[in-house]
Structure formats: structure tokens, C-alpha cells
Write a protein that binds this DNA or RNA. Structure first.
Length: 568
RNA sequence: CGGGGUAUAGCGCAGCCUGGUAGCGCAACUGCUUUGGGAGCAGUGGGUCGGGAGUUCGAAUCUCUCUACCCCGACCA
């Protein structure tokens, strides 16, 4: 490709509304352009990268036995009524209608469509197991799209769905998908972790996420510093930090704490550390209000909370009025003694003794509070976020925290959809049986952004070799005036092309500094600078984008050297 | 969904307070010079000032309204 025949429009300045580096660089290189909130055009440059990622995914999915297909992006509302998932997805569903006012959704995911397909196509256990996938545009009407294609509304996803007669078969395919995902991200060249995850609106039993490690990641992931355990913070088990509850040493005492509302204010006022206090959080319950109790220095894990049967979904904190009428005090003075609510305590809280909590009376707190003697709870659950330094739940090592970008998520769905939609097969006994199902998603467009988050410097992108839009850039100095330079550049360009190397030759009429800055921004892995200066010695100059060190190479060997580096 | 902000040329902005017929930088185009680290000079093109309504002799500017986009927030107990 010659730049004059390509569409290359770079910007020197950082766009004003791009907050994270991948978004900035994708705009500056011209890979993408914004059309509206969460809507992006992929220009030819970006498209080349996108297609590389898609191709790697395709190859690994095919190798793992996946069968590629394509389903409609637009889905009849009736399908979603069959599974009752309209409420689960809520406002994220983009509702549309046709001229006859029939209702449709633009698909955010395709469990319903594939299950409908399969219930009509698959009738016998002999056709199982089977694993279908597609690479397709989805739309999720995010509350707040941001970070460019990292969290856009319209995006491209690879989604796969497997069907099985037995749980064992499902687990087998699940493991092979896990392996395929690992190989995909390895081939793309990114540093990632596979972590335990909550299955959220998709549902089902087991699920794991694949996170590309990056400081800008929207998810917190916890991992053992010396073991195998790794989980999304949402899902990470938080262990009991107090082995056994000590006997009460203090008498119950009501103290005046005027104006002390937050845990930090309270513990400073009383001269204690926050781990001697507890927080009582009042939320809407399925039957009556629920008090979720965690230690003062801990954070409530909303996913864990909302998964409790006593807690209403979605999670809603009681408002000031409700708190006042239930406890007689304002938020800031709520405590567990004499509280008229279902009291659920975190594991660590259950073993606390001589602790401090609100007195259910404004400007008063209780110290020396002890379970059984002063207050009771209804049940003990894992309610809090795990923290860095906690023992790992599997007993090996200590937890560390990292930020991750979720690029893949695999689920064992069981028969949730097949039962709801009556997707059954005849088994070996000739009996009708609901199929077991798995689903496996991967964010293709997000993967591109994640790759940039992990591979850039202050000059621009540093593409991993396997997804670079071009492998080699030929940068001729004074191409339009120097016949010698032009000939050398054209020759190398033609012969690399002939060997199937993806090469871009910059034949624009631009000054050298401009050209070199542009290709540093674009991040092409191998760059060859051809100028009269080095041609005098029958040499050209080679630079690798990752270190940018200039090496003089003989004209006779540059081509074979490049081919060797690319094939390596 | 709640709160805040912005909207003027492809991009980034000024002008608005105090109404008088739109400007700067970058980018683009032409010419000349320059040619190994984002060149210089000269010139050129490009704007229903987000939409609608109102006030006024006159509105980018004042008023009302709609829309779009951006940011922040949804654990004080």
C-alpha cells in the first residue's frame, strides 16, 4: 500500500474529549471517528487491525470446533418475552419497531436467537455437542458510554453458544473455549488473566472473565500473589479476618458523638481505628428492610448483596425518610441494637467483639457492643469487597489487586434458556431432554483498544506484531526528488509485496520529520528509512518501533532480514 | 436516572457581559523556497454562529424552549 492510495489522516493534537490513551491514539491516528455518543466509524486503518483480531479469533474458534454462522442483529420482542429477560436487561435494550409497529430489539446478545435456531434444527442427541459462533455488531444502550470503543454502545462481539446432552459435555467444551480464549489473547500478544466472575444478566452457574491488565481498566481483579486464585472483585470471596470471636471485655456504653456521621469522623473522634467500628447499611428487602452490616473499614459488595434472597433486586439503599421512620434517627447513627430489620452480617463482623456502632439515636453511638449479649443477627454472609492483603480464599498466598479490561467472558448456562424456550432433544432412551448450554463472548472492538492501552509510549502506538495494520513501513527521504531513493524504495516495496508482507510505502510529499513522527504515532513494528545518505554506502536504516534504535543494514540483506523477523 | 457544563469553519478556541452583519491557531488548497525529526513566506477556499420561537430598526450576543454532546454521581450510616 502506498500512503497516497490509502486514507491516512493523522492529528498532532490530542482530542479534547478523549480521556484514556487508547481513545486518544485511535482518534489521532485516524483509526476511528465518532459519529454520536458511543457510535464510531472504523476508518480503513482501524479496520485493518480489527480484521486481524477477527481473523485470529476465527482461526482459534474453528480449531476448537466452533462453527461460524451469522444471526440477525434485529430480534423480535416475542423471543425475549419467552425468556423473561427484558427486565434483566432493562434500559440497555434498544427497542425499535417496523412500519407495522411490530416490536424488535437491536440484539445486545443472542442467547434467544440461537436457542430458537437450535430448537428447530437439533432434535437428536446424535447432533450434540455442537458449538456455533458469529462475529457481529451488537448494541447496548449503556448509561454512560465512554472511553471511545472501550465502552461504546455499538460494538463488535464474537459470541459463541454450545449445546450439550450432559453437564460433563458442557464442561468439556467450556474448558476447550477457555483454552481457545487463552490462545487468542496470547496470539494477539497481550498480558491477561482469567478470573472467576459473576454471571450477571446472562445467568447460569459458572463463569470466568478474561481481563487484559491495564491501569485504565474499569474492573478490579484480585489475584493470589503465590497461588492460582484470581477473581473479579465483584465475585472475589472475602474471608473471615477474625478466626474466633473473643469474649466481651467491655461493658455496653452509650457515648455522645455530636455531628460524627462518617466512619472516618467517628473513629477519629473516639480515638479508635475504623476496624473497631461497624457500618449498618439499610437496603430494600424482598419482605422487610434488610440491614447489611460490614466492618467500618470495609466496602459493601453490591453484587454479593443483591444476590441474597432477602435483598430486593436491584439493590436500593433506603432514603432518608425511610431510615428516619424505621430507626428514629438519621443515616450516620444507625446501629444493630434493637433494629427492626433483617440483620445480615458479614463473616468478619460476626466474629467481632467490643465493637462500636450507631445507637439509633442522632449524635449517639454505642461502644463495647457484643453479639448475643447486646444484639443479634439473622444470618452471616460474605458481604464485603475483598481487599489487598486479605488471605487468598483458596488458602494459598495473599490477595493483590490489579486493574483489568474485560475482553472475554465464558459461561456455563445450564438449561436456563433451553428450558424457558423448550429446546429439547431426544436422548439415547428416546426421552425428551432439555439441552445444556454454554456461551462465550469476546469483545472484538474492545480488544483493539485494550491492545493499545497495553502497548504505547509517549510517541504513539506500539502494535503487537500480529495485529499491526502493516508490518513494514518504508520511509523514503526525498522520494519525489531523488531518483536513487525512489528506485531503492520502490524495489524494496515491490519485492516485500511479492512475498506477501504487508508493507506501506510513504510516498507523500512531506518532510522527513513529519513522516517519521507519523509512523511512530501509527506504531508500525518494522520501519525502513531510505535516504541518499545511507545509499552512498549501499545501506538503509532499520528501526524497530519498540526500541527505535537505528541499525544500518546492507541493501542486499534488508529484505531477507525483514522477512525473517516477520515470519519468526 | 440525578447534578453540572458545553454547542461559533474538518479540529482546538476567542467574540457574548456592554446587540451594529464573524475572527485566531492547526488542518486543507495554490505558488516559491526548503528537504534526515512535526519548515518558511505569500496567497486561497471553507461558517444557516446546534434547531425553533420571541424582544429589537438590527441578535452569535438578550429571553424562552427543544435537541445533541461532555463530565461527575448513585456505600453517610
Amino acid at each position: 500500500m502506498r500512503t497516497t492510495a490509502f486514507h491516512l489522516v493523522t492529528r498532532k493534537e490530542t482530542p479534547q474529549d478523549a480521556e484514556i490513551i487508547s481513545h486518544q491514539l485511535m482518534i489521532r491516528t485516524g483509526m476511528i471517528r465518532k459519529l454520536g455518543a458511543g457510535l464510531y466509524t472504523w476508518a480503513p486503518l482501524g479496520m485493518r487491525v480489527l480484521q486481524k483480531v477477527e481473523q485470529i479469533i476465527r482461526e482459534e474458534m474453528n480449531a476448537a470446533g466452533g462453527l461460524e454462522m451469522l444471526m440477525p442483529a434485529v430480534q423480535p420482542k416475542e423471543l425475549w418475552q419467552e425468556t423473561g429477560r427484558i427486565d434483566d436487561f432493562g434500559g440497555q435494550l434498544l427497542a425499535i419497531h417496523d412500519r407495522a409497529m411490530r416490536d424488535y430489539f437491536f440484539g445486545p446478545t443472542h442467547e434467544e436467537v440461537i436457542t430458537d435456531f437450535v430448537r428447530n434444527e437439533i432434535n437428536s442427541y446424535k447432533q450434540l455437542p455442537i458449538n456455533f459462533y458469529q462475529i457481529q455488531t451488537k448494541f447496548r444502550d449503556e448509561i454512560r458510554p465512554r472511553f471511545g470503543v472501550m465502552r461504546s454502545r455499538e460494538f463488535i462481539m464474537k459470541d459463541a453458544y454450545s449445546f450439550h446432552l450432559s453437564q460433563e459435555s458442557l464442561e468439556h467444551t467450556y474448558q476447550s473455549m477457555k483454552q481457545a480464549y487463552t490462545q487468542i489473547i496470547d496470539r494477539i500478544g497481550l498480558d491477561f488473566r482469567c478470573v472467576l466472575a459473576d454471571s450477571g444478566a446472562i445467568g447460569g452457574s459458572g463463569s470466568q472473565e478474561f481481563h487484559v491488565i491495564a491501569d485504565s481498566g474499569e474492573d478490579a481483579i484480585m489475584y493470589s500473589d503465590s497461588g492460582e486464585y484470581a477473581a473479579n472483585l465483584e465475585k472475589c470471596e472475602a474471608v473471615n479476618l477474625i478466626a474466633t470471636r473473643k469474649d466481651a471485655a467491655q461493658a455496653l456504653n452509650k457515648v455522645s458523638t455530636p455531628g460524627q456521621k462518617t466512619i472516618d469522623e467517628l473513629s477519629e473522634f473516639l480515638g479508635v481505628t475504623s476496624d473497631q467500628t461497624i457500618k449498618t447499611l439499610l437496603v430494600e428487602g424482598t419482605e422487610k428492610p434488610v440491614a447489611l452490616v460490614i466492618r467500618g473499614d470495609h466496602n459493601l459488595n453490591e453484587i454479593k448483596a443483591v444476590n441474597l434472597t432477602a435483598v430486593a433486586s436491584p439493590l436500593r439503599m433506603l432514603n432518608d425518610e425511610e431510615i428516619k421512620s424505621l430507626t428514629g434517627c438519621d443515616a450516620g447513627s444507625i446501629g444493630v441494637k434493637g433494629l427492626n430489620a433483617t440483620i445480615i452480617v458479614d463473616r468478619t463482623v460476626a466474629n467481632m467483639s467490643d465493637f462500636i456502632c450507631g445507637a439509633n439515636e442522632n449524635d449517639f453511638h454505642l461502644t463495647g457492643v457484643n453479639w448475643d449479649r447486646d444484639a443479634d443477627f439473622d444470618s452471616v454472609e460474605d458481604l464485603r469487597d475483598a481487599m489487598e492483603g486479605d488471605p487468598s480464599p483458596d488458602g494459598v498466598g495473599v490477595l493483590r489487586e490489579a486493574r483489568g479490561i474485560e475482553v472475554g467472558h465464558i459461561f456455563q448456562l445450564g438449561n436456563k434458556y433451553s428450558t424457558a424456550m423448550n429446546a429439547v432433544v431426544l436422548n439415547e432412551q428416546g426421552k425428551s431432554q432439555a439441552m445444556e448450554m454454554g456461551c462465550y463472548g469476546m469483545g472484538v472492538t474492545r480488544m483493539v483498544a485494550a491492545a493499545i492501552e497495553q502497548n504505547h509510549d509517549d510517541k504513539g502506538i506500539i502494535w503487537p506484531a500480529n495485529i499491526a495494520p502493516f508490518q513494514v513501513a518504508i520511509l523514503p527521504m526525498n522520494y519525489l526528488k531523488s531518483e536513487r531513493v525512489k528506485r531503492a524504495a520502490d524495489e524494496l516495496y515491490e519485492s516485500l509485496n511479492a512475498q506477501g508482507v504487508e508493507v506501506i510505502l510513504d510516498d507523500r510529499k512531506v518532510r522527513p520529520g513529519f513522516m517519521m513522527s507519523d509512523f511512530e504515532l501509527l506504531g508500525i513494528p518494522h520501519q525502513v528509512i531510505i535516504g541518499d545518505r545511507s545509499l552512498d554506502e549501499n545501506q538503509v536504516e532499520y528501526r524497530n518501533r519498540s526500541d527505535m534504535e537505528s541499525i544500518k543494514i546492507s541493501r542486499d540483506t534488508i529484505e531477507s532480514m525483514l522477512v525473517e523477523k516477520i515470519r519468526a
